[in-house]
Computed example of a mutant assay.
Amino acid sequence: MTRTIANKSIVIAGGGKNLGALIARDFAGLGAKSIVIHYHSASAEAEAKETAKAVEAAGAKALLVQADLTKASEVERLFREAEAAFGRPDIAINTVGMVLKKPMLEITEDEYDTMSAVNAKSAFFFLKEAGKSVQDDGAICTLVTSLLGAYTPFYSSYAGTKAPVEHFTRAASKEFGERGISVTAIGPGPMDTPFFYGQEDEGAQAYHKSAAALSGKSKTGLTDIEDIAPWVRFLVTEGWWMTGQTILVNGGYTTK
C-alpha cells in the first residue's frame, strides 16, 4: 500500500515551534491538504502564527488551536476542532514533552505530577482521541526520548514518565491495527533546541555533543530537528508497516 502526505489532513500537537513546526512546514511542502497546529500557551502563540503562515504559503490550510493537553477534555477539544475545520484527520503527531534534570532525592511531588501529566497523561489521551478521530489507514506518531535506552542518573522523572508511552504505543497499535492505523514512537537523542539548553550546564552540553557515534558529522554534535523530521515523515507514510515500535533515532547516542 502506497501512502503519501499529499492531500492529507494532519494534527500536530506542539506544532507551533521547534520540531513540530519543522514537521508542519515539511508536510505542507509535500502537498498536505490541511494542518492543525496545536500550541500550549500564549507565550508560544507568535511562533505558532509564523508556522501557520508558512504552512499556508506552501499551499496547505492551517488551523491554530491553543490547548492544555494535560487535561483530557482539552485533548478531546483539539480533535473536535480539527474535525470541525477539516474533517477527520489522516495523521496525528504528538511532539509534546517536558524535561527535568534533577537528582531523584530532590524531586518534589508537584514536579513529579507535572512531569507525569505532560509526558505520560497527555500522550495517553492524545492516543485515545487520535484513535477515535484518525481515519482508517491513517497513522499516529509520538515523540519520546532516547533516554529510554540509557543508563543514567538525573533524568528519572523525564525518561520515567516517557517510558509508559512505549506501552501505550504497543497497545494502541494492536487495538487500532484492524483499521489499518499504524502507531509508532520516535526517541530522538538530545536535540539542538531550547528544550535541551535550558537543562544542561556547559560541561553536560559538551558531553552530550560528543556522546553519539555520529557526533563528529553533526553540525552541533547533537541530534538536529532536521534529522528527526524525515523519520516522522517515513513512519506515517511509506514506513506504515512498522507499527507498535519505539525507534531510537540519535546518531548512536544510545541503543537498546
Score class of each variant (00 low, 15 high):
58 A>F: 02
44 A>E: 06
58 A>C: 12
50 E>N: 13
53 K>I: 12
31 G>H: 04
62 A>Y: 00
27 F>I: 07
64 L>V: 09
64 L>W: 08
37 I>Q: 05
60 A>Y: 00
46 A>S: 15
51 T>S: 13
45 E>D: 12
43 S>T: 15
61 K>C: 10
33 K>M: 05
50 E>G: 14
49 K>E: 15
62 A>V: 09
36 V>T: 13
53 K>P: 08
52 A>Y: 01
42 A>H: 15
57 A>I: 05
39 Y>L: 02
40 H>M: 04
35 I>S: 03
45 E>P: 15
55 V>H: 01
30 L>T: 09
51 T>G: 14
44 A>P: 14
32 A>K: 01
63 L>R: 12
49 K>R: 11
57 A>E: 09
42 A>E: 14
58 A>H: 06
28 A>W: 01
50 E>P: 05
53 K>S: 12
45 E>I: 07
36 V>S: 06
47 E>L: 03
56 E>D: 10
63 L>G: 08
36 V>L: 03
59 G>R: 02
45 E>N: 09
29 G>Y: 03
60 A>M: 03
39 Y>T: 05
63 L>E: 08
35 I>G: 07
41 S>M: 08
28 A>L: 02
35 I>L: 05
28 A>V: 06
52 A>V: 10
61 K>M: 13
46 A>F: 07
54 A>R: 08
40 H>W: 06
45 E>L: 10
33 K>F: 04
57 A>P: 08
58 A>I: 05
27 F>K: 00
42 A>S: 14
47 E>V: 03
35 I>M: 04
